[in-house]
Amino acid sequence: MDWQLSLETERVTAAHPESPLTTRGDASIDAVLELLRSNHRGAVLVLDGEKMVGIFTERDALRLMARGADLSAPVRTVLATTPISVQRDVTVGTAIRRMSDGGYRHLPIVDYTGRPSGMVTVRGILRYLVEHFPDTIYNLPPASTPSSQLREGA
């Protein structure tokens, strides 16, 4: 299948979204960091009831550690504005553009009520791309080393 076409027709759910990792706003930053570590994730969604009120990422963790912030504070005190999200019927192409434009590595998928159902990550996108270019990407020699320097060979 034509790849560009598939980017504009295939749903974002084809780009290996992860199940959403969630926490509540009153959890401490320390607890959220531990949640990220133990689940090998780069972002966690902060919920108020069923609704997503924020996203906490590795970048936030770095910023807080760099500034020597109090990590026992509740995570809701350090959340940025409501994160950009997409609905599950957008195309892979749209998701890639939105992540690239905003510089996001994580893009939550929400349903029409605002309840998160998944998380698109740059890694999932990369995997999707690799799957769609297997010939190009896997058959490439690691370095441009000539197999023989001279045409006449040995």
């Binding site: 990369l126 995997r127 791309l129 690799v130 270019f133 190009t136 990407i137 896997y138 490439l140 690691p142 370095a143 441009s144």
Partner: peptide, 15 residues
């Protein structure tokens, strides 16, 4: 990687 490596190779490495 090196500047002369293909972008496809860089993607492969990252993946």
């Amino acid at each position: 990687i090196a500047a002369s490596d293909k972008i496809a190779f860089a993607i492969h490495q990252m993946e």
